[in-house]
């Protein structure tokens, strides 16, 4: 019994990190109405950025946030501004432009394979970091310390993004644009600026997620694909566009992955996750916590 509890706690911790990786995906969808297929690749870029920041400076992994988050924000901002905006302008009156999905797929292929070209297929990890392999002992249970840090970071980040959207002027502009592009434009909101900022914030959260992963996860060029598919599942489960839903969806996936192997072969859990995803898509496409409007 105690083992199941231990698994459950670690599952919730890991799940919250999954949720954090999907946070940007849900935010970007909420505003741009576009599934960003490059999101996993952006996470991968963040992981490499964090890796090199930590290796070159030798600081505590979480100090790398100071560099990684702003760098990723700018990366996302200009990616949207330069690559994705032209298509939005060309397909102004389509609510969910498929072309944009395809372009993000192109970005995914370019980023993943450029990384492969530059850094090679080697699996990297940060051997001597203060969080590596640390365990917290509570009674007979062992709780992973880096995942605990990740959990706290995920909750804080989600709360911060939520606060930003609710309380700041830019946040209000973002919400207005997500509800109705045209009406927001008529109110004097520059919708393309809003898209840039939303994409930037989404990418920055991917960077934050990358920092939480780096202390205990392998870094390799195609690592993003793992989180890509998982991210899609999480955001649909939680309701596309819902910030809290992303974290909760992540925790559900984390729990399934940690508890299900107690009862069956571990590889079957993946099938369960896909099954659950399809059922949610068919039965309640707005997700478990999705609101009627995307926000």
């Amino acid at each position: 019994m105690i083992y199941i509890l231990e698994d459950a706690i670690n599952g919730v911790l890991m799940g919250s990190i999954y949720g954090l990786t999907a946070l940007g995906l849900t935010l970007i969808f909420g505003v741009l109405k576009v599934i960003n297929f490059a999101h996993g690749s952006l996470l991968m870029v963040g992981m490499y950025a964090a890796y090199w920041a930590i290796i070159l400076t030798g600081v505590h992994p979480y100090v790398a946030l100071i560099i990684v988050a702003p760098v990723m924000y700018l990366f996302g901002y200009y990616l949207q501004d330069i690559v994705i905006k032209p298509i939005f302008k060309a397909e102004k009156d389509v609510r969910e432009p498929i072309t944009v999905i395809i372009v993000t797929t192109g970005v995914w292929y370019i980023l993943d394979n450029l990384t492969l070209l530059i850094f090679g297929p080697t699996y990297r990890n940060i051997q001597d970091n203060p969080l590596k392999g640390k365990m917290l002992e509570i009674g007979e249970m062992f709780i992973s310390v880096p995942k605990l840090w990740g959990f706290v970071t995920a909750v804080v980040t989600a709360a911060a993004v939520y606060w930003f959207l609710q309380k700041t002027r830019m946040g209000r502009a973002i919400r207005a644009t997500s509800l109705d592009r045209e009406a927001a434009s008529l109110m004097g909101i520059n919708q393309f600026k809003v898209y840039n900022v939303a994409f930037g914030i989404g990418t920055a959260t991917a960077g934050i997620a990358a920092v939480t992963l780096v202390p205990f996860y392998n870094i390799f060029p195609s690592v993003g694909v793992l989180f890509d598919i998982k991210g899609f599942i999480i955001v649909v489960l939680g309701g596309l566009g819902s910030i809290g839903g992303a974290i909760l969806g992540g925790i559900i996936i984390g729990l399934i992955e940690s508890i299900a192997p107690q009862f069956m072969t571990a590889t079957w859990t993946e099938a369960i996750v896909y099954g659950l995803f399809l059922v949610v898509l068919f039965v309640k496409p707005s997700g478990l916590f999705g609101v009627k409007y995307d926000w």
């Binding site: 192109g106 394979n113 450029l114």
Partner: peptide
Amino acid sequence: GLHLIIFGTVLI
């Protein structure tokens, strides 16, 4: 992975 970089660029 060069061909996939080309694919992606052409696609965009």
